[in-house]
Amino acid sequence: MTDKKLAIIATKGSLDWAYPPFILASTAAALGYEVEIFFTFYGLKLLEKKMDVQVTSIGNPGMPMPMPMPVLLQTLPGMQGMMTAMMKAKMKKKGVASLEDLRSLCVEADVKMIACQMTVDLFDMDSSDFIDGVELGGAATLFEFAGDADITLFI
């Protein structure tokens, strides 16, 4: 088994960008890596017990759309919810794990999750809304682990 370490900084709070941290963390843990994820800014949403994350095509011209749609139409109320539902349905159909499942796999595999204290305070978030096992820490806490990590990813 490897004794490598992976540090991830998760900064995004959308459905699509929630995948890379959890996929990479769970896979690295399965390969024997010790893994720590530092959640900051919008990434903190990924720690909430009820993970309510959405996807949007606004400002994301690379997102594949089932049909061409003018940007102004994409901004209509309800569009984001519809896109999120469509994306989730597509993922389910293709056998892609749900974020909740991937996060549970990370927890099971002892992936350490740190919530950035400063942004928790900034956004008036309540750390009791986070899943169990999350620790609060600052930049120095991240570097304590990342300083020894073989791989550090900013996502």
């Binding site: 996929i23 769970s26 896979t27 399965a30 293709k94 056998g95 892609v96 794990a97 796999l105």
Partner: peptide
């Protein structure tokens, strides 16, 4: 069968 990356690896592990 039917599972996508990284699930086959995680289930195998």
């Amino acid at each position: 069968s039917g599972l996508n990356c990284p699930l086959p690896i995680l289930r195998a592990k």
